[in-house]
Design a protein around this nucleic acid. Structure first.
Lengths: 180, 180
DNA sequence: GTCTATATAGGGATAGAC
DNA sequence: GTCTATCCCTATATAGAC
């Protein structure tokens, strides 16, 4: 098994259980690898697995979400593509946000910088698109912040209710809403 | 030490670390009690501690947040009181939402019913207030949902950025925004 | 009501065979 | 590259003294 394959199978564990809840047993079951095999791929152990997962998701985020925001399509279309990809990534609201999951407990101390960085780039890129769509700079910044708040909040509510509807509605309405 | 005193000191542990990250060592340090003393108060161990914490916060929520929404003041004033209390409870955005923290890992299986219940009552009470303020029923329901999404999303973003500003702005603007 | 001591399981991590 | 076996530590939980 390649490192990349392993990382992909580790993602849902950190997402669902957070850093502290992602035990080696769970990581081992998710990959089908024994503990020692995991240590062969990730010599730094669990901390390196979490770092690799964050790195991988960061790359995906860069080449999928941020790239969608930077195309030459119309702003509304770019936001739609972003939302489609988010919808798939979060499995229509059934899957947690990795960033949210990791900001609990020890994970927050270990990975705060990366998480902060990803959020800041996302905010910047959203604000740039909105500015380009003719929205004044200050309002664009504010709406970019609101976009992330709405996505994250909808995920939290959907999980709390055990019902994906709030997330699905949010994703469907977000593109037009941000440009209104 | 009374059970209630103990519960109050346990709350921040579950909030910051989630159910799996809330180890007996941390719970013991937070209360200043040895493990056995904790078991004296909570015979069911960690699971009972989490249940007691949820129950306590649920009570606080009922007598503080929901009660504020049911007074005979003007709707705007009631929402303001709710937001003031939320601001204090979440320490201006520095503290996580207990419900969000517990919905990761094993805690979700154990406490999903209580969490769902609390969210549903909150949604209902918000929708009732908005209806009373003259907002059509369907829109009121939708905005109630949006209120919780905005609060939870702002908490997630604030924690991710390590900056309470998004939460503080949200709490300050929310009452007028919901009635607009 | 709190403590010390202890039991049992699971946690993270490593050595070395294949 | 994966395994078995093992290490030490921490986690949850209990017994019984004070």
């Amino acid at each position: 098994m390649s490192r990349e394959q392993a990382i992909r199978q580790l993602i849902p564990v950190f997402r669902r259980y957070g850093y502290e809840g992602a035990t080696l047993s769970r990581l081992s079951m998710a990959t089908g690898l024994g503990r020692s095999s995991l240590y062969h791929h990730f010599r730094g152990g669990k901390e390196e697995m979490a770092a690799a997962v964050l790195e991988y998701v960061g790359q995906w985020f860069e080449t999928t979400i941020l790239a969608a925001l930077r195309t030459r399509d119309e702003p509304l279309e770019r936001l739609r593509v972003m939302c489609e990809n988010l919808n798939e990534f979060y499995q229509q609201g059934q899957e947690n946000c990795l960033l949210n999951a990791i900001t609990f407990g020890e994970g927050n101390d270990l990975f705060h910088r990366q998480i902060e960085q990803m959020l800041k780039i996302w905010l910047d890129e959203l604000a740039r698109l909105l500015l380009e769509a003719g929205i004044p700079a200050e309002i664009a910044k504010h709406r970019a912040q609101e976009a992330i708040i709405l996505i994250q909040g909808a995920l939290v509510l959907a999980r709390g209710l055990g019902n994906t509807a709030p997330f699905e509605e949010m994703i469907a309405s977000l593109p037009e809403r941000l440009l209104a």
